[in-house]
Every structure is written in C-alpha cells, then in structure tokens.
C-alpha cells in the first residue's frame, strides 16, 4: 500500500504536467527536504547541493508529463532525477570526495534499528529493499549504501574504509549478486 505522502506526490506531479504552479510549489515544499538531503550527501557542499536541487526541480517541472506510475513511485523518480543531476555536476566539476571539507558522512540514518513509528512512514518498496539489504554482509551493505548516498568510487571507498581496492570491488560485486534475486 502506498503511503499517503506518496499518493500525494504522484497527484502533484500529474497536476504539474498541466502547468499547475500551486501544485509545483506544494511538491517542492514537501519533497525538497529529502531531495536536498540526498544532494547534500552527494555534493558535500550546501551551495552546490542547492544548485543541484534547483536544476533537478526545473527538470521535474519540465518533465512532469513524462512521469507515470510504471516508472516507479513519484518520490523515487524525483530522487533519480536529483541524483543524476548531482552526478552530472560532480563530473563536470571533476570534484573529488577527498578535495572537499566533509560535512556529511556516515549511514546512521540507514541503520537497521529504526524506530517503529519511523518504519510506518516507509513505503512498501523501501521496506522490501531494507529486507533485501539485510541479507548482505555488513561490509557489502555499507559499500553499496555509501556508493548510492555519497557517490563514492571504488577507490574512494577503499581509502575511506582502509581496505584493499580488490576487497571493496569484491564486496560490491557479491553484494549486488545477493541483491539481484531478492529485488527481481
């Protein structure tokens, strides 16, 4: 079952596709805190994260008519738009994780011991993904989540975790292999 918020995002996107600016403002107000949080982790600098958020929302407005439920949930579609904008920007800036003053790191927010009331807010898709992620070894899970949330390369993970590059690559490969049948 969809969460009430998720239903709302899909409906707001549909209204955005009809150029409804009030709906777009509401969508921004409700979805931007999560999307900005994602952009912050990927970009590490608030000013860059705000640039990404701005570009992402302009694209969301322009492409709202291309969203349909078959592309997944509205929030995950918007997260993908934001994440791809962030990765494009990182690529264009050739910004390296090691060159920034790290302000956002760690995976405390993705720990297994969520409060029950917080778990109720999660969509069915996220709860299913969490169950799949629990099947991974902690190091495999950590590498995949750090890659997703922070955009770390294998080399950066190797340095951050102080493990050989080959070990990190193997963790990720085996982690994804374990996830595949669970997600299928």
């Amino acid at each position: 079952m969809d969460t009430p918020m998720e239903d709302n995002f899909a409906e707001l996107l549909q209204r955005c596709s009809r150029q409804d600016q009030q709906a777009f403002k509401q969508l921004y107000q409700e979805a931007s805190p999560k999307l900005y949080s994602l952009a912050l982790r990927l970009m590490q600098k608030p000013e860059l994260a705000e640039d990404v958020l701005q570009e992402a929302f302009i694209k969301i407005w322009q492409k709202a008519d291309s969203y349909n439920v078959q592309k997944g949930k509205a929030l995950t579609w918007m997260a993908t738009v934001t994440r791809n904008k962030a990765l494009d920007k990182l690529r264009s800036l050739k910004l390296k994780y090691a060159e920034t003053d790290i302000q956002y790191e760690g995976l405390d927010f993705a720990s297994d011991d969520l409060e029950p009331e917080h778990q109720e807010d999660l969509s069915q898709e996220m709860q299913r993904l969490r169950e799949c992620l629990k099947q991974l070894q902690p190091a495999q899970r950590e590498c995949i989540l750090l890659s997703y949330y922070y955009g770390h390369t294998h080399q950066e993970l190797s340095e951050k975790l102080n493990k050989p590059l080959g070990t990190v690559k193997a963790w990720i490969r085996r982690g994804l292999e374990t996830l595949k049948p669970c997600l299928s």
Binding site: P33, L75, T76, T80
Partner: peptide, 15 residues
C-alpha cells in the same frame, strides 16, 4: 526505481 526508495531513509534538510 528500486534503489530510489533509499531516499526515504534520509533525514529532512531544509534548503
């Protein structure tokens, strides 16, 4: 679409 759900776990941050 599946991995995009991970955004739900992030804390809210206000731009």
């Amino acid at each position: 679409s599946q991995f995009g759900s991970l955004v739900e776990l992030l804390p809210n941050e206000k731009p």
